[in-house]
Design a protein around this nucleic acid. Structure first.
Lengths: 233, 233
DNA sequence: GGGACCCTTCGGTACCGGCCGAACCATTGG
DNA sequence: CCAATGGTTCGGCCGGTACCGAAGGGTCCC
C-alpha cells in the first residue's frame, strides 16, 4: 500500500546525476539518439555514457533498440516525458544565454514552434491551444478537457481515427506547461494525434534535425480556415 | 530557455536518498511534522534528520515553521505533493505487507478513506469522484474538468466561496491516481475545497492521528442526498 | 535556577558512484 | 581479411555525502 521510500529514492537517483539528467532532457525531443551522440552531447567518455544508459534503461525510463552496431535509446513512454516536464516546470525560465548568431536564431525558432515529446509547443502550440479553447473545442475553465465538439472536430475535421481517442491509461487531454510561454498547451493523446496530423498534412515541418518546427504556408491557410488563426509566423 | 541539466539533477538529488524520500512521503499526509518525529520515523539520529531537513527546505520542497523548541516542516505546496504522487505512480502497487492485527486494520482504514495531501482519496475519494461524474458535475471523457453545473454545485450546494475557485496557478480540477484503487480521484483546488467542506460539515473525520478518515453517519446521509451515493462504509 | 527536552553544529568515518583509459567485442565497408 | 567505427567491460581513482556521537545552544516546565 505505501510506496516504499527506497523505490522513490532509486527512481530519483536516476535523474540525480547531471549527465543522466542531460541525457533525459535531450531525449525530450521524442526522437531516438545513439549512445555516441549522447556521449558527445554530454561530453563524457563513451564508456561513461554506456553506464548511464544501462542504468536509465534498467530503471525503465528509457527503452533501447539495437540496430547493427548502434544502440538507439529513447524515452520509454509519454509518462516519462510528462514526469520530466513536471520536474522541469519547477525552475525559473532560464535567461536566454544564447551567444552568437547561430544560437540566437536557433533559439528564436524554438520559441516560435517546437515539439514537446510528441505534441506541439512554443508560440505555435499555445496559439493552437488558445484558438481551440476560443472555438469551444477545449475547456480550460474547470481543468483541461476536450469538449464533445472538440472530440468530433478531431475525428471529423482532422481525420483522427476515433479508436485512437479512446480513453486509455494516458489521459486524452492534458495541459503541459510551456517553458517559453509560461502558458499551458495541449498535451495527452489528443495533443499527440493533433501534432501527428499537422505533420501528415504538411502544415508543419521540422527545421533541420532539432525539435524546432515551422508552420508551412499550407499550414497557415489551414489554421486560418479551421480555427480563425492568423498572424502566426 | 533550456532547463539546465544541473537544475534537474539537483532537484532529483533531493529525493534520491532513501531517508529524504521517506520524509517526503510521510509529509504527503499534508500535516506538519516535527524534526524529531521524522527522525524517529526514518530511524536516523536527530542530527542526521536536521541535515536532511535543511537540504529539503533549501531546495524548496519543504517549508518550516519554528515554534518554541520545535521545528515543524511540511510540503511547500500542492505542486510538491503532486510531484511526489506522480513519481510514486510509476511503481507497482505494493503487496500489502502488513503484519499483525493493528497494522492490518490500519491498512484497511487507509484503503477505505484517507487524505491525499489536501483532498480525499481511497475508496471514499474515488466513490465521490465517480458519483460526481455520474451526476454531470465532472467530465472525465475528454480529460479531467469540472462542468459548469459542477462549479455551481460546489458554490451553491457545498458553499465554497466562488473566489476560492478562481482559476489560478494551480488547476481547478485534476485527476490524481489513487494507489490503492488504481483509479483517478478529484484533486486540484476543487478537490481541496471539497475536502475542506467535508471536514467542516462533519461528514468525514480523522481516525486517530494518521491520514485515514472515516465517513460519519451525517456524512453518509449527506452523500446519499446530494450524490445518490450509498453503501459506502 | 535547575533540569528535561528538542534541535543544531561539528568533527570523523565509511561507502557509494561517476569518471576515465585501455583493452576488447561486434558490425560495417573496403 | 583488414581497418575503421561504435559500443562495452574492467580496474582504479577520486570526490561527495549519509551517517553517527559528542558537545552546545534554545526553550519550556517545575
Amino acid at each position: 500500500m505505501m510506496t516504499s521510500a527506497s523505490d522513490l529514492a532509486s527512481l530519483a537517483a536516476l535523474l540525480a546525476d547531471e549527465t543522466r539528467a542531460a541525457i533525459c532532457l535531450a531525449l525530450l525531443d521524442g526522437r531516438a539518439w545513439t549512445a555516441g551522440e549522447l556521449a558527445a552531447h554530454t561530453r563524457v567518455a563513451p564508456s561513461t555514457a554506456t553506464e548511464h544508459l544501462n542504468r536509465l534503461v534498467d530503471g525503465g525510463l528509457l527503452i533501447e533498440r539495437r540496430q547493427g552496431r548502434h544502440r538507439y535509446v529513447q524515452l520509454a513512454d509519454a509518462s516519462v516525458a510528462h514526469l520530466l516536464e513536471d520536474l522541469s516546470a519547477r525552475f525559473e525560465p532560464r535567461q536566454d544565454s544564447a551567444r552568437g548568431l547561430r544560437a540566437v536564431t536557433a533559439n528564436a525558432a524554438m520559441q516560435r514552434g517546437r515539439t514537446c515529446y510528441d505534441h506541439l509547443a512554443g508560440r505555435l502550440g499555445v496559439a493552437v491551444t488558445d484558438a481551440m479553447t476560443g472555438a469551444g473545442l477545449l475547456d480550460q475553465t474547470g481543468g483541461f478537457a476536450l469538449t464533445g465538439t472538440g472530440l468530433c472536430w478531431l475525428t471529423d475535421t482532422l481525420g483522427v481515427r476515433p479508436a485512437d481517442l479512446r480513453p486509455a491509461k494516458r489521459p486524452l487531454a492534458r495541459g503541459c506547461l510551456d517553458w517559453t510561454e509560461r502558458r499551458q498547451h495541449l498535451a495527452g493523446t489528443a495533443g499527440a494525434k493533433l501534432c501527428e496530423k499537422f505533420f501528415d498534412n504538411g502544415w508543419v515541418a521540422r527545421i533541420g534535425s532539432g525539435r524546432a518546427v515551422r508552420l508551412t504556408t499550407t499550414g497557415q491557410a489551414a489554421l486560418r480556415d479551421l480555427l480563425g488563426l492568423s498572424g502566426i509566423d
